[in-house]
């Protein structure tokens, strides 16, 4: 069920990228896709009722492994968030420059490249 919700989030983002005409809205849609994927990644590592994967005092490695959620996807999500941030900054910078050149955010009016 929750997995399906992630996919819905990703699909909403894809819809936005395909349909929207405003460059800023396209960038926002791309961010939504990335959020959907991040949630999916965290969910993959989740186990119901699991504890944080930190070795606390008086806990053996075996009990930790039996109860903790999978820490690897969390590390992956941190990394993808960094990548997405870089991506987002670059995209927004390109949007600002596009606005300076064309005087509009409407992608249908930016049509110099054809063929």
């Amino acid at each position: 069920m929750v997995y399906a919700l992630c996919l819905v989030l990703i699909a909403i983002g894809l819809y936005g990228v395909v349909v929207k005409k405003n460059v800023v809205k396209i960038v926002i849609s791309m961010a939504i896709i990335e959020y959907g994927i991040n949630v999916l990644l965290v969910l993959i590592g989740y186990r119901s009722g699991g504890c944080a994967p930190i070795l606390q005092q008086g806990m053996t490695a075996a009990t930790l492994a039996a109860h903790a959620v999978d820490p690897l996807p969390q590390a992956l999500v941190l990394t993808t968030i960094m990548i997405n941030l870089g991506m987002l900054i670059l995209m927004v910078a390109i949007c600002i420059r596009l606005y300076e050149r064309y005087g509009t955010f409407d992608i249908t009016e930016m049509r110099r490249l054809k063929g």
């Binding site: 791309m30 995209m91 596009l98 050149r101 930016m110 490249l113």
Partner: peptide
């Protein structure tokens, strides 16, 4: 103009 437009297109599809 065209460089920014191409980069935006490339970035959206690439992402």
């Amino acid at each position: 103009h065209d460089e920014l437009e191409a980069a935006f297109k490339y970035a959206v599809l690439g992402t």
